[in-house]
Design a protein around this nucleic acid. Structure first.
Lengths: 106, 106
DNA sequence: TGACATAATGTCGATACTGACATAAAATCG
DNA sequence: CGATTTTATGTCAGTATCGACATTATGTCA
């Protein structure tokens, strides 16, 4: 939003900062979710390729079946840190992750 | 570690599982730290390029100067989630992040 | 040099994420 | 179909991370 327009809206009583922030937050959060989904899908694909059950993978990761399920579902309670750490533990490299991110959709 | 050697060590009373796990965890954690540092550096570079103080950036991110300092220092108390979210909020794209990851060092 | 801006470090209460457990829902296979 | 395995969902106590604040260290400039 350009400054002149913003000033006008502000003068009209809009809480411009809040609105702008809201929109930016959405875009940024959307990107975060997209990234999460990409990582989550990659985990599932790698698990399937290795013919592991969620239970077996959980053991490998020293986690639990339910958390693996949530990882693969990109559940809000799962961080990107955990997804990344899991992928790396499954043998993915930095470069593999980079490829995931440059690829648009899953 | 190859299986025969592992069996020997196990027979000698080593807690092989623990050692192996420790080593694997190290490699994976090292990769995590590397990634963190790359993201942290990128944040600092972008901030400097925009001629922002940590304080100013903190305001933009709705965070605090001290946390920005910790982000740029890749402090253990900072998650990759936070670094990523911050980068995206500063206008970085998925692809930008991918490039950071495929590049070896900072 | 000293005054002032910027950055680093330590701490803390509030909140978010974790593995684990229980259980329900789906899938797989005779 | 039922039996068994696998996956999904809800919950929770323990821990990690968050923004904020206070303080210290490091510039920077006249």
């Amino acid at each position: 939003m350009k400054k002149p327009k913003r000033d006008k809206l502000a003068a009209a009583g809009w809480k411009v900062g809040d609105i702008t922030d809201f929109l930016e937050l959405s875009a940024e959060e959307a990107a975060m979710v997209e990234i999460k989904i990409s990582l989550a899908d990659s985990i599932r694909r790698r698990r399937i390729r290795r013919k592991l059950s969620q239970e077996a993978l959980a053991k490998l990761l020293k986690s639990s079946q339910s958390r693996v399920a949530k990882m693969e579902a990109a559940d809000p309670s799962v961080t990107i840190d955990l997804l990344l750490r899991s992928l790396l533990a499954m043998g993915a490299t930095r470069r593999d992750v980079a490829r995931l991110l440059s690829a648009k959709a899953a």
